[in-house]
Amino acid sequence: MSLRIHQLSKTFYSTDAPVKALDSISLEIKPGELVTVNGRSGCGKTTLLLSAGGLLLPDHGEVTIDEHILYALSTEDRARMRAGKIGFVFQQFHLLPYLDVINNVMLAALAGTESLARAKELLKRFNLAERLHHKPGSLSTGERQRVALVRALINNPLYLLADEPTGNLDDDNAAEVMAYIVEFATDGGGVLLVSHDPRTGDSAGTRYTMNKGRFV
């Protein structure tokens, strides 16, 4: 069981010269493994993460999740795969502004009552028990990212794909979020973390550095 990326390439075409965002990238994330990809903005990290999550069709190569070739599946089956096996965390949190904390978390939940219990338990663990009915607008940035993290974990995913999860956080909050991500990996989950934030480099695990779509 693993999330395997093999020879992944993606080029973006615009009015200017073509931009090669991914150039024959391969990596594998096994359960319990934290893979960090560092690199400067525009080096292709987010493209890698979106492709790994089944959201961006690569030009070449393939992504395999537990023996399923992701892009051989239909769009809707890929969505189902994401819902069941992948958790996403983004730098901008992307919480729905009109839903309170518990409803934002439950938004991603697939099952009914047991998800609600798990959501409350996770929020408690992430020190958000007092914030269940607060709207995102009334939360601090650290709290928002923790809510986003709980939302990513609500379905007990096998893999966590995190795009600059600490990018908007201060040192304390960044450390706290990283601690949860490491804990997820320690508990047997696979993590692909892409970031230009050097604070993420302290975590144990496999680390790649990316430049112009290639690992260096």
Binding site: G53, T75, R80, H94
Partner: peptide, 9 residues
Amino acid sequence: ILRALGFLR
């Protein structure tokens, strides 16, 4: 984000 969370079209 809804699509990333696995919402179908």
